[in-house]
Design a binder for these strands. Structure first.
Lengths: 235, 235
DNA sequence: CCTTGTGAAGCGATTCACAGCG
DNA sequence: CGCTGTGAATCGCTTCACAAGG
């Protein structure tokens, strides 16, 4: 679903590690705000919700930034992780589709806090174009290519209905964008070199439902349909 | 970050497979709407954005629902996957925190479409309590335990600010909830047997930024800070 | 002959356990 | 002595390649 980048492991950082670095960054930021200047792998791992061996292995991919017998310098580690993730530069993000979700994203503080700047909002609905949301003017989708280029947008968030997503995707790629965060419940097809991440709220709920059902069945009975379970796979 | 359930693999379905079943379900639903009644692993895999060997292995964990030389019956497979995911029953979901995101989630059609029913909305802000959103009355957080029990809520979505999330989490667990979808940017600590999944919008962007930076550096130059790269990890 | 279902090989990530170093 | 950094063992998922079967 996510087309792997040609050299995702270029300098040798595993994808799984990259996905956890933001977690460490968040934990470190929280520590700094509490005035903590040094932290052990044990404590940082606890704060980030992972185990300490994994944390140390992850950090070892960035370099040897700890001090044996002591731990890690919080500020320094924040800087190194930020640099590795590319958060020391400013990223212009555009959000396409200003429905409920797009609006929520535009107003979401977590974006701005880490080098991300919402630089443009687009919609195709004339009733929405021209609205001011989070200090931005909603522009018509016709302006997509022009505005993306003019404002140097490098990451696009797709928050459109499912049936518009692929079309928007094609257009932003044609405009030079190679990083897309997709909230629409469709599989986007993209050429090599374009990175797509997806968030599907309904999928997360379905995974929870699976486990919830498991738990209910184990505890004896459950809410419903506990009958045809152990009868094998015969059609 | 996600505490593994004791018997996540009970009847032997790998987590990775569970996470893809909703994807297959979506692809199958789309096929059915186009009138397709039978599909090969090759075609279904393509529609779901995975490779066909993986799809066949995944489905084989549910049973032998295909016909060699022919493929899978679309309707039948939809039923089997739905049943496995627990979507043949009705799940009452509560959303805590009716800010921009909570509102968007309450109005999100994808929830309702698959056995999920938003049964309650909570907020602590008196200015929001009493509002009608998506046909529901927003209730005060004080009613959390009562309403959860009365309406049989089994899945809770936390869409509160970060500093309220743990407290809400503790309360819903005390009320008997064991499945939580967390949008707040904090690591929730929960007892064994409680399943937490998290969605962090800012983390997804950070992962994209990492790859984007890689691409920019490889293509020669990039937007900024292309200097101190190849100089090793010396502090 | 076509497509499923699956042993077996391959691969990446996690975990263990301890050597190395401040 | 304590904590980091890491080779080695392990685990689980993916992919291959083909036997089984309509």
């Amino acid at each position: 679903m996510i087309r792997r980048l040609p050299q995702a492991r270029s300098r040798g950082i595993p994808e799984a590690t990259v996905a956890r670095l933001p977690l460490y960054l968040r934990a470190l930021t929280a520590l700094t705000e509490r005035g903590v200047t040094t932290v052990s792998s044990e404590d940082l791992a606890e704060a980030a919700g992972v185990n300490s061996a994994k944390l140390r292995k992850d950090l070892s991919h960035l370099g040897s930034y700890g001090t044996r017998g002591v731990g890690y310098d919080v500020e320094y580690l924040i800087y190194q992780i930020s640099r590795e993730l590319g958060l020391t530069q400013d990223w212009a993000v555009a959000i396409v589709g200003v429905g409920n979700l797009g609006r929520a994203l535009a107003n979401y503080g977590g974006f701005v806090s880490r080098g991300f700047r919402v630089a443009a909002l687009f919609d195709s609905d004339p009733g929405v174009v021209g609205d001011h949301i989070a200090g931005l003017n909603v522009e018509h989708i016709d302006e997509l290519e022009t505005v993306i280029k003019r404002r140097g947008v490098s990451i696009v968030v797709i928050a459109t209905p499912a049936d518009a997503a692929q079309q928007v995707c094609d257009r932003v790629i044609a405009a030079g964008v190679t990083s897309i965060l997709n909230f629409a419940p469709v599989v986007l097809s993209v050429p090599d070199g374009v990175d797509v991440r997806k968030v599907d709220l309904s999928i997360e709920l379905q995974i929870l439902a699976f486990h919830e059902q498991r738990k209910a069945n184990r505890e004896g009975g459950g809410p419903a349909m506990a009958e045809d379970w152990q009868q094998g796979a015969s059609a």
